[in-house]
Simulated scan of single mutants.
Amino acid sequence: MTLSTSLLAAAPLIVGLTGPAILGAVPGQHQVDRPAVEHAVEHAAARQSMVVEHEAARSDAEQRRVLGYWTPQRMAAALPIGLLDSVTDGDGLLSGLTGRGGVQAKPGVSGGRTEINVGRRHQASSRPQASTIGARWSTGGAVTRTTGRVFLTLAGADFVCSASTVTSASRDLVVTAGHCVKDGAGEWAQNWTFVPGYGRGGEQPYGQYAARRMFVSAPWSRSGDDNHDVGMVALATSGGRHVADVVGTQDIAFNTRRGGQTYGFGYPADPPYDGDQLVYCAGRLRDDPYKQTRDQGLGCAMTAGSSGGPWLSGFDPMTGRGTVTSLSSFKYSDDQHTMYGPYFGQAAKAVYATAERA
């Protein structure tokens, strides 16, 4: 993510891709004065210019190699993505991240940096709470299957993030943070693997899925723009089965109304958490008070490792289903208890439109 305190440029607008959209909704008819085919070509070209793609493990042999890489020992030793600067020393995004941060920590207006830690482990609640800065999710439901841990290699070091399956034409798509896929303007992640429903002691009830293709928006790829910290990954099948057919999916939406009640999920691995349990935060969203991004904040004390975990609007705690409208991205170093997530607007919609059919 971008670590400067300068104001960020406004997100680009893609002509023809306007208005709120939830996957599965029937689009309204448009008044056109040119053939629909011509409009489709224009829209596809606009989307393509906004999306940067990377080919990951395409062949069966390469997918087997990636899955074989993640031995139980490597998984246990992988570090939360917020610790990148502790083990890498390049000149790109990786070298600029703060230390033991709550996801990626960036300086607040004071310019100071602090370690983002919470005093004690938050205990599970017997029933879902409408407002919490962090509790173990113990209610079950779809979210326990659709959310999972991500294991990846960047700059020669192994890391963990979080991600969620989302509805797609391919039945293979997950959404996560851009910094869990590509180091801003730097390199792409390697050995990228998704483990849905990850459990204590490394339990993998639904198997592992290697990445086939990765997608981020052009602003993220060019400069690690916080407004566009979104990545989408098309997975290979496991045992011949698509991930959506095994664990189900959450809906995903774009250009939704700002604010409102949201539940955020992830696998925080920095103390006081250990990455073995699904944790959630819940509350109402608010705009970035520093005005450095268009992101929205959620009261949340989750730590590193929760990066990329889904934020679900319209969430039903009884079924564990909702609509992904953002994800865990960063914290300001002088505000340990607010997580920020990118607004899913036109750029995120363009990434999805390309990735869901990959």
Rank of each mutant, 00 (worst) to 15 (best):
Q123W: 07
D295I: 02
T176G: 09
Q277R: 12
V51F: 03
W311H: 04
T262A: 05
Q346K: 07
Y263V: 05
T153D: 09
R222F: 10
N227W: 08
L93K: 11
Y340M: 02
S328F: 00
S6C: 06
A78Q: 09
A358T: 11
Y267P: 04
K331P: 01
P12N: 05
A142Q: 15
V26Y: 06
T249V: 06
G148I: 01
L79H: 08
P196W: 01
V243R: 03
T147C: 05
G108D: 13
A44Q: 07
G134E: 02
A169D: 15
D89G: 15
G305C: 02
F194L: 03
A142N: 12
T256K: 07
L17A: 07
L94R: 07
I81P: 00
N191R: 10
G283K: 03
Q204C: 05
D172Q: 14
S6L: 14
R47S: 04
K291T: 10
T237L: 04
Q292V: 12
R284D: 08
V216M: 13
V37T: 10
G90M: 12
G239I: 10
M50Q: 15
R171C: 00
A253K: 02
M214E: 14
Y263M: 00
Y69A: 05
R149Q: 10
F159I: 00
R113P: 01
A355G: 10
R136I: 11
A353Q: 14
S95H: 13
V41C: 00
V15S: 11
Y206I: 00
T323E: 01
T147S: 04
G141Q: 02
T98L: 14
T256Y: 04
S168D: 05
A163G: 09
G266S: 02
H39Y: 09
V247K: 02
D276N: 15
G309R: 04
V66G: 03
A25T: 12
A350K: 13
R136L: 07
L327K: 01
P205K: 07
A353D: 15
R121E: 12
A11S: 15
F194C: 03
Y198W: 14
G259Y: 13
N117C: 08
L154S: 06
A135C: 04
I14H: 07
V175G: 08
G112F: 08
T139Y: 00
P342C: 03
E38S: 07
R284M: 03
T2F: 15
P317R: 09
R357M: 12
Y198R: 13
G184E: 09
A40W: 06
V52L: 15
A301W: 04
R212E: 13
G96F: 09
A169Y: 10
P219E: 10
Y290N: 15
R222K: 14
P128S: 09
S333E: 15
A347Q: 13
